[in-house]
Simulated assay, not measured.
Amino acid sequence: MIEVINFTKHYGDFTAVDDLSFSIGEGEIFGFIGPNGAGKSTTIRFLATLLRPTSGEGRIAGHSVTDDPMAVRRVIGFMPDDFGVYDGMKVWEFLDFFAVAYEIPRGVRRRIIGEVLELLDLSHKRDDYVNGLSKGMKQRLCLAKTLVHDPPVLILDEPASGLDPRARLEMKALLMELRRMGKTILVSSHILSELADFCTSIGVIERGRLLAAGSIRDIQRQIRAHRVLKVELTEGPTDRAVAILQDDPAIRSVEAFGQSVTAEFHGVDEDMGRLLGRLMAAGVPVRSFAEEPLSLEEVFMMITKGIVN
């Protein structure tokens, strides 16, 4: 649904984005992450048809970003990282304004606005003035206006920026619901732990270059040579579990702390099943047995160098 092909953007002698390429499949939530100044917003503005590239191309739902921007605008909903609202305008009037801009007929606008307000849990704010809304409600309203024309692709630049913890959780729930409705979503954010909860894939950018892209699990395996197993016991000493793990050819090192045993694992998935079977057969009281993945924060710190343009 979204393709970026060798996108480059220069501002004079300064290169904001350098030969960037990635793709996002239909129905995915793609987390676009990177430090400040990495080129995220430049790329997002290009995809939203607000910025001409120095070179390269983009395609959304089959439409060229550079050659057919009006077709792209019909199939995307764009939420910028900073937006304003109009004084003296009510919530429904704000949405009606954008519905008119998208040439939605008068006869269906009222129904569409009602549906969008209900989806975003804003029905009770329908007749409130937009400049009197809280930060969280304004964020919801901005997301609502991106949905009035029912676009299949959403491009959201820091949608949870400045929100309190409850409002961030509500925003995450909304994005997950929109994916269930079939939307393809590109979302940038600095709140990495929340992206890990609901993104199907991520792209990591630094100094205008893409460092990694794909599912979080695939990227974890690319940057860490081994996997880590964590075994939690219900009771008793860990001696038997440690001895069994140390004796296995798929294990390189083992550490025990309290009722937990952590092992460096160099095998395949079938070896995990075999190891668990050995522990159970030996009567080790296993409470949980699982691979311990890297967190998205750890992935980010291992990939990036902390350098900004």
Rank of each mutant, 00 (worst) to 15 (best):
V261K: 04
N309P: 15
R110Y: 06
E158C: 09
K138F: 08
L245A: 03
R179S: 05
H63A: 10
T304S: 13
M137R: 01
I155V: 14
Y86G: 04
V187K: 05
V204P: 09
F46R: 00
T66Q: 06
R274S: 11
T54A: 11
L50F: 08
L174D: 04
R221T: 14
E235C: 08
F14R: 13
A71Y: 01
S193Q: 14
R217M: 07
G77T: 02
T8L: 13
R274P: 08
V187G: 09
M1V: 14
L20Q: 00
F32G: 08
T200Q: 09
V284F: 10
R109N: 03
C142Y: 05
G136V: 10
V108W: 00
I244Y: 05
V153R: 02
D218I: 04
D19R: 02
S64G: 11
A256W: 13
M272T: 14
T184G: 14
A243Q: 10
G31M: 05
V65M: 00
S201N: 15
T234L: 11
I104Q: 00
I202V: 15
V268M: 09
M137A: 04
R74P: 06
R209G: 02
G25R: 14
L279N: 10
E170Q: 12
G37F: 02
V153N: 07
I244S: 08
A48I: 13
E206W: 08
L50S: 04
L147S: 02
A144P: 09
N6D: 15
E57M: 11
R179Q: 15
R179I: 01
D157K: 00
R111M: 11
P105C: 08
V130Y: 02
F98Y: 15
R59V: 14
A196K: 12
G84P: 05
D121S: 15
T304I: 01
G182T: 03
G114V: 00
I2F: 12
V286Q: 04
Q246V: 06
G12H: 11
R274Y: 11
S188I: 14
E264K: 05
G283C: 12
A225E: 15
H10W: 14
V153D: 03
I33V: 15
A282G: 05
L210D: 10
I216P: 15
D121C: 07
Q246T: 13
L47A: 12
V284T: 09
K138G: 02
V91W: 02
T49Y: 02
I303R: 13
L119I: 09
E158K: 04
E264D: 08
R52T: 12
K9C: 10
E255G: 01
A48G: 06
G162S: 06
S295D: 12
G236C: 10
A213L: 06
E26M: 10
A196S: 15
A61W: 02
I2A: 04
D164G: 06
L143Y: 11
I223F: 06
S21I: 11
L133C: 09
H10T: 02
E264C: 03
T66E: 08
D121I: 07
P237T: 00
R106S: 14
L192G: 01
A101R: 10
A48M: 05
G182S: 07
K40N: 08
A213T: 15
H124C: 07
G114T: 03
S134M: 11
G132K: 13
